[in-house]
């Protein structure tokens, strides 16, 4: 394995525009270290990016909250800005991994790892998060929901990296929020199921609805069909049998070491139900 440490963002982009073969961006290292230990990563280039200033930090502009890709979960949890602007997002991540991992793991790593269980992704999906991708030749901003294309696959080009995550300033405003992550224990757990939701209900009618799930497909995703079904519906008229049928089309849970597909399906359904029937408390 070859270790590369670029000095600046510019140097980093130059390096990745030229090198070929397998490469791994190394920031917090909480996941790559384990993959190396387990022999999942054997060869390739390790490109260290944790020290690059432009990739770290939380700030805001007129429309967005911007989180640099190597920002740690501890920075997120302790951020005053997020506490003011995106308290639901911040609070939901309190339970991320463990207090020790939070100090080291980064938001960009959680996304770019591509794991179906990534905790932060369902949250960002309902908050309409965007990614700023940069390379030596271009900058582009995409919606996070367009980022993934398959299991551990995404649209990132070989010379591109995630620079930052954008969340609209008003993403949580006026919404009734919901996030539940189900693991095998309360701390240090990997999600078996995660459901995040935002809804606006006026006079018992669903005016806006966003639901995203994790650990139930090849990558975390929004439940577009369920959202379509629910939009403009009166809460009384929701037919959960119908939702069950739609959900079968939208999620593809599997049985693995951590859980079973039937369990994942039923609990996902229960959580959606819990979210929809939850009294509107904001």
């Amino acid at each position: 394995m070859e270790f590369i440490k670029p000095n600046t963002l510019k140097e980093l982009l130059e390096i990745i525009s030229t090198i070929t073969g397998e490469k791994y961006y190394f920031a917090g290292g909480t996941d790559i270290n384990i993959q190396i230990k387990k022999d999942i990563i054997r060869n390739g280039k390790i490109i260290f990016i944790n020290h690059i200033k432009e990739l770290n930090g939380i700030k805001e502009d007129e429309n967005y909250i911007l989180i640099g890709s190597t920002t740690t979960f501890r920075q997120i949890i302790e951020s005053k800005l997020l506490n003011d602007k995106l308290p639901f997002f911040q609070k939901s991540l309190n339970n991320f991994a463990s207090p020790l991992i939070q100090s080291q793991a980064t938001i960009g790593g959680n996304i770019a790892n591509g794991s179906p269980t990534a905790d932060v992704v369902p949250l960002l999906l309902v908050l309409d998060g965007k990614l700023e991708l940069i390379s030596n030749s271009m900058n582009r901003t995409i919606n996070l929901k367009d980022f993934f294309t398959g299991y551990k696959k995404f649209i990132l080009k070989p010379d591109e990296i995630i620079k930052s995550i954008f969340i609209p300033q008003n993403a949580e405003n006026g919404f009734d929020t919901f996030y539940e992550k189900i693991g095998s224990r309360k701390a240090l757990s990997i999600a078996k199921i995660a459901v995040a939701g935002l809804k606006k209900v006026v006079n018992n009618e669903i005016n806006e609805i966003k639901i995203a799930v994790g650990s139930l497909n090849e990558y975390p995703r929004r439940l577009d069909l369920i959202e379509d079904y629910l939009l403009n519906k009166d809460l009384k008229d929701i037919d959960f049998k119908k939702i069950r049928i739609i959900l079968k089309e939208e999620i593809t849970p599997i049985t693995d070491l951590r859980s079973d597909k039937d369990y994942r399906f039923e609990v996902c359904l229960n959580l959606i139900k819990k979210f929809l029937l939850k009294p509107d408390s904001g």
């Binding site: 384990i34 387990k38 463990s98 095998s184 224990r185 309360k186 701390a187 240090l188 757990s189 990997i190 693995d256 070491l257 951590r258």
Partner: peptide, 21 residues
């Protein structure tokens, strides 16, 4: 052990109770 899925390989998979459990 979980039938068909072999044995737990480390403390990540084997869920020991934590202070919250």
């Amino acid at each position: 052990y979980k039938k068909g899925y072999g044995r737990m390989q480390g403390l990540t998979d084997y869920a020991l109770p934590t202070s919250l459990d």
